[in-house]
Design a protein around this nucleic acid. Sequence first.
RNA 1: GGCCCAUUAGUCUAUUGGUUAGGACGUCAGAUUUUCAUUCUGGAAAGAGGGGUUCAAUUCCCCUAUGGGCUACCA
Length: 496
Amino acid sequence: MNKKIRVRFAPSPTGALHIGGLRTALYNYLFAKKYNGDFILRIEDTDIKRNINTSINYILKTLKWCKIKYNEGFHKKGKYCPYIQSKRISIYKKYLKKLINNNFAYYSFETEQELNIYKKKYKNFIYNALTRNKLKNSLTLNSTLTNKYIKNKKYVIRLKTPKNTNIIFNDKVYGKITINTNEINDKILFRSDLTPTYHLASVIDDHIMKISHIIRGKEWISSTPIHILIYNYFNWNLPNFVHLPLILNDLGGKISKRLNYNDSVPIYPINSKHFNIKNSYKKKGFLPNALINIIALLGWAPNYNKEIYSLNQIIELFDFNNISKKDVHLNYKKFCWINKQYINNSNSHFIDNILLKFLKKKIKNKKIKTIYLKKIIKLTKNRIFLINDIWNVSYYFFINPIKFNIPNSIYLLIKKNYKKILFFFKKIILFFKKKKKKKEIEIFLNKISNIFYLKLLRISLVGKLIGINMLYILSLINNKIIINRINYFLKQIIIK
RNA sequence: GGCCCAUUAGUCUAUUGGUUAGGACGUCAGAUUUUCAUUCUGGAAAGAGGGGUUCAAUUCCCCUAUGGGCUACCA
């Protein structure tokens, strides 16, 4: 096999790109990268009714954010322009004519309503070699009638599938798959609205564009015989078929472009007439590198006891043999864990800047100095899983607690003298220098022998028993604010 | 309903005839953190069921069960 590796990602612009689509794109990209091949982006918009024009842009943005680069295809110059099927219809028509002339395709004249009646009447109605002799089509009607239908443009064009023939192909993931032609319809290649369908367009394009490996979701396995027939009818060399296991949603079904399911969360946020995607992996605070790692491991595992791989490692190790045949369920907590590994192990300057940007946006108070924010980030970032979590672990540096959550265990022990204790703390805190000396605070904290008194102080400052070491809380929050918080606590909380 | 495909712990996966069935997330316990989280250590937890083939089966074959895909003038 010395043919050049050429693969394509061919989404239809009918909605948001979800994690399954992105994985297909990624695996194509990885395979091309590994063998120095071409990775092509082709837009399959043959079904005009379902197209959503903003989704092309959305797909491009998502791929860009994930750094999945294609070197040929939509919006790029290339040998096989254009890379959008709606602008290639004349090509498909040309090939379609050849199929008809060679008697590999024929005109069929039933209306949709008529077909629905058949489907209702006969349970397993299939339009193919077993039934087409009894139906209205160019094979059964005489030429005058046929021509009349064609003239009035009341037809579809169907692929002529042979009778009772086993189509066998060797899938790179699933191995040998056999499907009998009696089970498949004479697929419609050309609709009554005179547009080609996916099956025709994609096979022709894959051949013209010299695609060597078709890497796509497993849901296409049952259509593969149709594609193989078309290749054979044209006497074209077959590409390699690589079908990927499906990614299942929380209901156990195929993830769809409809955004009803939690797991179908798209990658990139977008706000347009057609979508309003707030809940995306990007928006949640996943890093693109981590997401690539996560998605690569969805149905593929190299034979190492390891979870974290750089893109280069993934490219090097990527192999169809390591792709699982089993459909995968998403494990969101593991996603978060992988993201955390990236937050902790990546270049810290890079991550800190992302966190800084996030916090600045969240706080909106321009008076807060960058150095201060950086200190807080340094102290809190080892506690987060997603970028957005940084707020949850640092908010108490920026906003005063309003509600106070005092666990019973502490409540019982301090209820007698909590006022005294806090007054005492206030006195000491007032004596801290403006630029607080750490040592001073350390001595103070060490002197508090009763752990519950410390907890009381924490609750009054943070609201809950969470957060980083008191030493840093006391030294980073300004004395005045600390006193105010204690005062507010004493006002709000009446412990009897 | 028909056809195709899959089936190792809650989830992802390793081991493709001989292993105390390995790892990860999660979970549970302990340590660190005078809190919480992180981190560290340890534990529990799996070959869907039934038949074959074989000296030996998680691994090969068959049946059943379960799950999924397809069965569109959608891709």
